[in-house]
Computed example of a mutant assay.
Amino acid sequence: MQSLSNRKKVLEQKPMNFWERIYLPAIFKGLSITIKHFFKPIPTVRYPEVERPYSKNFRGQHSLKRDEEGRERCTACGLCALSCPAEAITMISAERQKGEEHLYREEKYAAVYEINMLRCIFCGLCEEACPKEAIYLDGPHVTADYLRKDFIYGKDKLVEPRFDYKDEHEPTA
C-alpha cells in the first residue's frame, strides 16, 4: 500500500515570460471587455415610466371572471384549491338564500375565496382545473407591498369589476 506522501503530485509551473510579468496584456483584455459592454444598449426597463411588453402567455395576477349576465362564474367546487401544488387557495362555499336562487344558475357560491400570493407559484393549474372557466391568470404582475397580510387577495381584489351588462345590449337612440 502506498502512503499518502507518495500519491501527491507536484505541479510544475512554467516560468512567466516578460509580458506575463508586467500584466499589460491582461489589463488591455479587461479594458476591451469593459469598453465593449459600455456601448451595448441598456437592458434595464425604467419601471414605472416605461412598461415592459409581456408575451401572450404571461401569467399575471389571478382574476375571477363573470358570465355574460354579470354573475360570478365560481360555484365553489374546490377543484382549483385541490389542484394547487402550493396550497395557496382557500375557499369556503355557501348556499344561496331561497329568495335569490332565481337570480343565479347555481345554488352554491364561494362566500370566501382567498389566494395567498406569497405561496402561489403561478403554475396555472388552478386555471386548467376550473370547469366553469372562472379563474384566469391574466391580470398585471403582483405589486410590491410591505406587510404579509396584504398579499392575501380576497374576492375584493380578485373578482373582475362589475359593469352594467343590460346597458350594453340595449339599442342606442
Rank of each mutant, 00 (worst) to 15 (best):
M1C: 10
Q2I: 13
L4M: 05
L4F: 00
S5L: 14
R7V: 00
K9E: 10
K9Y: 06
V10F: 04
Q13M: 10
W19F: 14
R21T: 09
R21N: 06
Y23R: 06
L24C: 10
L24D: 09
L24V: 10
A26N: 03
A26C: 06
F28W: 12
F28E: 08
L31G: 14
I33T: 11
I33D: 13
T34R: 02
I35G: 13
H37G: 12
K40M: 12
P41R: 07
P41F: 02
T44D: 13
V45C: 03
R52K: 05
Y54S: 06
S55N: 07
S55P: 15
N57E: 14
N57F: 03
R59C: 02
G60H: 03
Q61P: 01
K65F: 08
R66K: 10
R66F: 11
E69H: 11
E72D: 04
T75V: 15
C77L: 10
G78K: 03
G78S: 09
L79S: 03
A81W: 08
A86T: 15
T90D: 08
M91W: 02
I92R: 00
S93H: 01
A94V: 01
E95S: 12
R96T: 11
Q97L: 02
E100P: 10
K108W: 04
K108R: 14
A110G: 02
A111T: 11
I115K: 00
N116W: 06
R119G: 02
C120P: 07
C120L: 02
C126M: 06
C126N: 07
C126R: 04
A129L: 06
C130A: 12
C130H: 03
P131T: 08
P131I: 15
P131Q: 06
K132F: 10
K132T: 12
A134N: 08
A134Q: 02
I135H: 00
I135L: 12
Y136D: 01
G139D: 07
P140E: 05
A144R: 05
A144G: 15
D145S: 12
R148F: 13
K149M: 06
K149R: 11
K149W: 06
F151Y: 15
I152Y: 04
I152N: 00
I152V: 15
Y153P: 14
G154F: 04
G154R: 09
G154C: 01
K155W: 02
K155E: 12
K155A: 14
L158I: 15
P161K: 06
R162H: 13
R162P: 15
F163T: 05
D167S: 07
E168F: 13
E168D: 01
H169C: 06
E170H: 12
T172M: 09
A173Y: 01
